[in-house]
Write a protein that binds this DNA or RNA. Structure first.
Length: 125
DNA sequence: CAATTGACTTGAT
DNA sequence: TATCAAGCCAATT
């Protein structure tokens, strides 16, 4: 059996560490996980949380253009925006937020630590 | 195992 | 700024 963590599990592990009031875009999450072009897969992973987010602050992940990017569920998109605004992130009249001032930028060390403990915790599940 | 699915990204128009 | 086409990816069918 392959007990190594799936990509999705690592996505959740990293996203769980995004501080309130900070955001990350899909592409950056993928990059930090070592899959530079896996942005789309990150979106897929987060979409699976639709039925229960299990403490994963999915609302802190937006697209590279700085906008909420949830398709198919207007209510979920509205919820994401509301959660971000509740954390102090403002949106302009066109729905863009300030990525420049709220982009979470963890040190490589921190990312490595997060992933290491995630692997240890998920090992053999 | 091939096709399908999306909360993606970039570059061009 | 809005659209569109391509390229990419893990998970699901």
């Amino acid at each position: 059996m392959d007990t190594s963590p799936t990509f999705n599990q690592l996505v959740y592990a990293l996203v769980r560490h995004i501080p309130p009031g900070m955001v990350l875009n899909y592409g950056r999450v993928a990059y930090l996980l070592g899959v530079p072009r896996g942005a789309r897969a990150v979106g897929w992973a987060l979409s699976l949380l639709r039925h229960g987010d299990q403490g994963v602050p999915w609302h802190r992940v937006v697209n590279a253009r700085g906008r909420v990017s949830i398709k198919g569920s207007p209510q979920s998109a509205a919820e994401q925006r509301a959660r971000l605004e509740a954390e102090g992130i403002a949106f302009d009249e066109q729905g863009y937020l300030d990525m420049e001032g709220h982009l979470w930028n963890p040190t490589p060390d921190e990312v490595e630590r997060i992933l290491r403990e995630a692997r240890a915790r998920l090992q053999g599940q």
